[in-house]
Write a protein that binds this DNA or RNA. Structure first.
Lengths: 336, 336
DNA sequence: CAAATGTGTGCAATCGATTCCACAAGATCG
DNA sequence: CGATCTTGTGGAATCGATTGCACACATTTG
């Protein structure tokens, strides 16, 4: 039944398809009589115009591709929700994909998005696709990078970017531990492919240097910023002959793993081991052991910002000709 | 640059568009020589076939609409991730929307999905759209309801359904509290529009009746199953002259609110007040006060199941002519 | 060796909308 | 009253692919 086409409507209403289209889009002149006749038929047949056909003709799909490492990560979902709320107002829908921190998969997804002719792309890149992205952007596709930069253009890029001030943030976070007297620090990081990890680690080193410490921190590099990575990191640190007295975890998922494993091993935070996390662990307020430092993040606002930039790009807003760069500053908090 | 069309490719390769299409889809006969010539041009022009045009002709979009109350709820994201992983294998993409527990918004989204000509829909309904859904399904659109039933057809429907055994689950969960000696129980529920809430509440009553209790529980009905609902519920319960000694929270988000507010008010679980939650609170293992009962849920598996049913529907698998009904049984766990 | 079969290619219709253009009335103007 | 403008409508091209059909040539087959 939803097979009704504009032709059938035109036939039943005894008008041309052009007129039906005019009625539905309120474009051009149509007499009141014909208008109501057409609308009647539309209702009777339960006619739904095909967005596919319209997109083909108008070269506009009202769809925005969102590619993130993992759609079930609350951080990225917060971002997505922010994007959705902003662009949804203007009638855009989101197509979602997880790249699983896999650059190859991300590449395939980027290609798919092009084939689907999305109007724009929001991307938290898993890395290694810089060339493709620059080319895609040059060809006119609006792309907003979110959370993560391209490797080749860490200092600035032609692509729009909404991210956090990672170096400064991680640096301030680390300083908290240093000020508390910790010297032997374990750093939990993800794969070096990803800019946030690289930058935050740089922030850690910066803080240590500024504090006059010249020892190197212990580092654990995970595979994919997962809870499991955090668990493995703690296991490794605890097995060292000289255990770190504090841990800096550079991502929210890994932090959850870190906390779970510490709690499981019976240690107390921060008495036995201090922890600082880049990113809030949801429900952290429930923590058995208070005293955890964490860097707040505002994924929802970041998503909103990305959505706004995107809309202006799609509208070809002249006042936004240069690449937009939006950096979010983070605040340090403490549970307990 | 991405404006290359099949026509341009055909022109440069000195063949017809039909042949280009055959090469790209590996259909029909094409000589090796022509094939490589075409592929060369395709690469050189960086040609990406338009999925829009293909969809129009083939009446297939390879897109699946997913409508849930809130895409940032981990439960629904788990489901979505399950769906994505299953249908992604077959080349399908997901279009995501949040209905915000708002039936009107849901209705609009359903319409949008029809216009976009998605191949199927996964829906966790916010209620009140039963008639539209039955009609949509009758017209041939594969729809899999997930987590929540239609009101009109609580006992069975023509639509496929993947859900949990809510009555039994809530009943067993409540029994735990009753066995621990609690008599005065507070129930935290959402709006009665939603089937899970209705069923779980029925489960609570069932347990009380079977246990020989004829008092009525205190009930708090929230607006939208949100964290805030949980917080408000606890505030209300604590302000009663005769406080409940135990709380059953019938949804994971509300449970988080319940826990946060209890912890904030300085009460201890379960000594001061016992809590049982339908649904796990992520990071519950970190709980300051152990002893929380919770009903596990398996959103990811539910999503996978929904994806499988969907794929069979799309393929018009004959062995699946009747409505599918998949009920998940939940296990009770306890933190601490 | 004629007929049947297998390969390789192009023409043109088609999917379902939008939109430019032409044209026809009726209204307004100088 | 003829020219111009406004309003109302339909015809037909178009967007970018897929695919049934026709046709040509090559290869088997009986």
């Amino acid at each position: 039944m939803s097979k009704a086409t504009i032709k059938q409507v035109a036939l039943e209403a005894e008008v041309s398809t052009a007129t039906v289209s005019r009625v539905l889009n309120d474009s051009g002149f149509v007499s009141d009589e014909v208008k109501s006749r057409v609308l009647d038929v539309v209702n009777r047949l339960n006619y739904q115009p095909s967005a596919i056909a319209r997109s083909l003709k108008q070269d506009k799909t009202f769809m925005i591709g969102v590619i993130v490492p993992d759609i079930s990560n609350p951080y990225f979902m917060g971002i997505s929700r922010g994007v959705e709320d902003v662009v949804g107002q203007e009638g855009f829908q989101l197509i979602f994909c997880s790249s699983d921190e896999n650059p190859e998969k991300e590449k395939k997804l980027l290609q798919l998005m092009q084939e689907k002719r999305v109007d724009a792309i929001v991307l938290a890149t898993s890395g290694d696709n810089d060339a493709i992205l620059e080319r895609l952007s040059d060809s006119g596709m609006p792309i907003v990078l979110i959370d993560r930069k391209l490797k080749s253009k860490e200092a600035g890029s032609k692509l729009d970017l909404v991210a956090e001030d990672n170096i400064d943030g991680a640096s301030r976070l680390t300083r908290k531990l240093l000020e508390a007297g910790h010297v032997r620090i374990g750093v939990v990081n993800g794969p070096s492919r990803v800019s946030t990890g690289r930058e935050r680690y740089a922030g850690v080193l910066k803080a240590m240097k500024e504090f006059g410490l010249d020892t190197n921190p212990l580092v654990f590099n995970g595979k994919d910023f997962s809870i499991e990575d955090g668990i493995r990191a703690v296991r490794k640190f605890l097995s060292e002959e000289e255990r770190p007295t504090a841990i800096v975890s550079l991502n929210n998922r890994m932090s959850l793993g870190v906390l779970l494993e510490i709690v499981r091993s019976g240690l107390r935070i921060p008495d036995d081991i201090a922890v600082a996390s880049f990113g809030e662990v949801e429900a952290g307020a429930l923590l058995k052991n208070p005293g955890l430092y964490y860097m707040d993040q505002r994924p929802y606002e970041m998503g909103q910002k990305a959505g706004e930039i995107l809309l202006r790009r799609i509208r070809k807003d002249e006042t936004q000709s240069n690449a937009q760069l939006e950096l979010f500053y983070n605040e340090i908090n403490r549970f307990g």
